[in-house]
Amino acid sequence: MGTNGHRLAPGNETAARYRGSRPTRTRTRTREDFVNRTHTVVDSPYGPLTLVATGPELSGLYMVEQRHRPPEETFGAPGDRDDAPFAETVRQLAAYFEGELTAFDLPLHLDGTPFQRRVWAELRRIPYGETWSYGQLADHIGQPTASRAVGLANGKNPVGIIVPCHRVVGSSGSLTGYGGGLDRKRRLLEFEARQQLPGLF
């Protein structure tokens, strides 16, 4: 357990080199058969996280009782945590939960419609420790009247935390619309805020 009281198992290595790492590389594709999918489950401060891989790329990160969580049979066979992309995903998540990582750098396979993938790509531009409203997110993708559709796409983000849909809030700043539950959303935002202003906590 690190100084922030956050634990991730296995693989709790953290390093200063993660702070300020490059934005996540993303490769998006159309739907494929599930034959190349594998999964594993790791502990986190927010409960067990199911990691799903399509080949060597991360295609899912799901919390327990998450809204829009796909059926378990779509996750594929159990995978080896030492293989790509699980080993590096676990290391980077551990660094994030320790407050050492502010931007993930992992190969992603995001399976969705073109509009959903545009929204998910823009989510990765929201700075660590900050929030955007659904309207702002719609503006950023060039569709200012599509805030409702943006909210629906945000809720179906397949890779939580790493693609930070928790950083999107209501127009008044209210916490709304998080598939992992509002309590987890609040805790994630408070955690990131503490890392930005460590001297105040």
Rank of each mutant, 00 (worst) to 15 (best):
T3I: 12
T3Y: 06
R7T: 14
L8P: 02
N12I: 03
Y18E: 02
T30L: 13
R31C: 00
V35S: 14
R37P: 02
T40A: 14
V41Y: 02
V41S: 08
V41L: 07
V41Q: 11
L49D: 06
T54F: 03
G55M: 05
Y62L: 04
P71N: 07
E73T: 09
G76A: 05
A77H: 11
A77V: 14
R81W: 00
P85K: 04
F86E: 01
F86Q: 07
E88M: 12
T89W: 06
T89R: 11
T89I: 08
F104A: 06
G112D: 08
R118N: 06
R118C: 03
L123F: 06
L123Y: 05
L123P: 05
R124F: 00
I126S: 08
G129R: 11
S133L: 04
L137K: 08
D139N: 14
D139K: 11
P144A: 11
S147V: 02
A149V: 06
K156Y: 11
G160N: 13
G160E: 12
V163A: 04
P164Q: 09
R167A: 05
S171A: 14
S172L: 04
T176S: 14
G180M: 14
G181S: 12
K185F: 00
R186S: 13
L188Y: 07
R194M: 09
